[in-house]
Simulated assay, not measured.
Amino acid sequence: MITSTKVRLEPNNKQNTKLFQSSGTARWAYNWVLSKQEENYKNGGKFLSDSILRKDLTQLKKTEELKWLNDYSNNITKQAIKDSCEAYKKFFKGLSDKPKFKSRKRSKLSFYQDTEKIKFTETHVRLEKIGWVKLSEHNRIPTNSKYSNPRVSFDGVHWYVSVGIELNQIQLELIDKSIGIDVGIKDLAMCSHKEKPYKNINKTKRVKNLEKKLCRLQRKVSRKYEKNREGGSYVKTGNIIKLEKSIKKLHKKLDNIRTDYRHKVTTEIVKAKPSRIVMENLNISGMLKNKHLSKAVAQQSLYEFKTMIKYKAERCNIEFVEADKWYPSSKTCSKCGYVKPKLSLSERTFICECCGAVIDRDRNASINLSRYKVS
C-alpha cells in the first residue's frame, strides 16, 4: 500500500525566496489554463486537453514577456496545467464545483516535484532548481525508495515536502475479535472493548487556554485594523503583520495537538489486534450545516479520524467495515435486541423498555456496531 509522509523543511533565505517564487509559478500556470479554457468556451470551442496547453506554453516561453518561466522547473507548470484540466473534468462530470482562480493572498501555496529528480538523504532533500534543503526530521523518508506525487506546500508558517511511499503490510497475529467504534462530539470515540471513552481533546485545559489566547489576539488585531482604517480601506502596519503571524502559529499549534491526539488514539485501537473494526458512517456534511454543532464537529475532524483508522487497519491486514448510515446502533438494546422507536439526543443513558437494561448510550452503540453484519 502507498502511504503519504510529510516532513518539515528548514530552508535558508535564498531557498525560502525560491520556494515562494516556485509556488507563484504554479499558481500562474493554473490561472492561465482557467483563462484559456473560459476564453475558448466563449468562442464556441471544445475543452482543451492538457497536452495542447503544454505545447502552447512551450511556445510562449520563447517570448520576451514569459521568458522568466525558464528560471523554474518545467515540471511545476506541467503539473499545474494537468491539475487545472483535471479540475475542469471533475466539474463536467458533476463531482465538484467550477474551478476558481487561485488568489495570491488566500490560496494555499504549493507546487509539484518530479518523481525522478527529487532525491533524499538522511538529512536533506534535493528540489529541482532550488538545491539541497535541510529536513527538520532525520531518517523519516527512506532514501532508496520509489516516490509518488511529491509536493512542496506552505501552511502559513512552515514549508513541507510530502511524498507517497510504498509500504509493506505488517504481519500481526490478530485475535478473533470485532471492535465497534461510536464517534461523537461529547467524546471522540467509544470502543466496545473498553469501558471508558477516548475523551474530547478540545475540552482539555491546555486546548481551552490556547483558544482563549487565540480569541484575545484576534480581537487585538481587529482593533488595530479599525484604528488604521482610512475611509473604506485598511492599512496593514508592521504590528498587524506580527500579530497575524502569531495567530497563524497558534492555529498551527492547535491543529498539531488535535492531529497528534487522533494519531495516538487510532494507533492504540489498531494495536489491540482485532480481526475487524466497525465504524458508523456519519453524515458529517449535514452536521456541519447545524450552526450549534458546526464548530464542535469541525474541531473533532471525524472524517480524518476515520481515514486514519482505515489506512492503519489496512496496513495491519485488519478488516475495516463502515456501518450503514441508517443502522440503529443507538436505538438497539445490546442485551436483548429490542429497537426503540424514538431516542432523543438528550438521553445519554439507554434504558431498555423490554428487558430493563441500563447502559451508557455510546457504549451501547459501540457494542451493537461490533456485532454489525454486512448485508
Rank of each mutant, 00 (worst) to 15 (best):
A189T: 12
A189D: 05
A189P: 13
A189M: 06
A189S: 04
M190R: 01
C191V: 03
C191I: 00
C191R: 02
S192H: 00
S192V: 02
S192W: 03
H193C: 06
H193Q: 08
K194C: 07
K194V: 03
E195M: 10
E195L: 12
E195T: 14
K196P: 06
K196D: 02
P197S: 11
P197Y: 07
K199H: 11
K199V: 11
K199R: 13
K199Q: 13
N200H: 02
N200Q: 06
N200I: 07
I201F: 10
I201V: 12
I201C: 08
I201S: 10
N202W: 10
N202Q: 10
N202T: 09
N202D: 14
K203S: 04
T204E: 01
T204S: 15
T204C: 10
T204D: 01
K205N: 09
R206F: 05
R206P: 13
R206N: 14
V207E: 06
V207D: 00
V207Q: 05
K208Y: 00
N209A: 14
N209E: 09
L210D: 05
L210Q: 08
E211D: 10
E211L: 14
E211V: 12
E211I: 12
E211Q: 15
K212N: 14
K212Y: 12
K213W: 09
L214I: 01
L214F: 08
L214V: 06
L214C: 02
L214D: 02
C215R: 15
C215W: 09
C215E: 14
R216A: 04
R216E: 05
R216S: 04
R216T: 09
R216K: 14
R216Q: 11
L217S: 00
Q218R: 15
Q218C: 08
R219E: 14
R219V: 01
R219G: 15
R219N: 15
K220H: 12
S222M: 04
S222W: 00
R223G: 00
K224C: 07
Y225T: 03
Y225M: 03
E226A: 13
E226W: 03
E226Y: 08
E226R: 13
E226H: 13
K227V: 03
K227E: 15
N228L: 11
N228R: 09
N228S: 07
N228P: 02
R229A: 03
R229Y: 04
R229F: 02
R229I: 01
E230G: 06
E230W: 01
E230P: 01
G231L: 06
G231R: 04
G231M: 09
G231N: 07
G232T: 11
G232R: 14
G232M: 12
S233H: 13
S233G: 05
S233W: 06
Y234Q: 00
K236L: 09
K236V: 01
K236W: 03
T237V: 05
T237F: 08
T237H: 07
G238S: 14
N239A: 00
N239F: 06
I240W: 09
I240H: 05
I240K: 08
I241F: 08
K242M: 08
K242F: 10
K242Q: 09
L243W: 02
L243P: 04
L243D: 02
E244N: 15
K245A: 11
S246W: 04
S246D: 12
S246K: 11
I247N: 00
I247H: 03
I247T: 12
I247L: 06
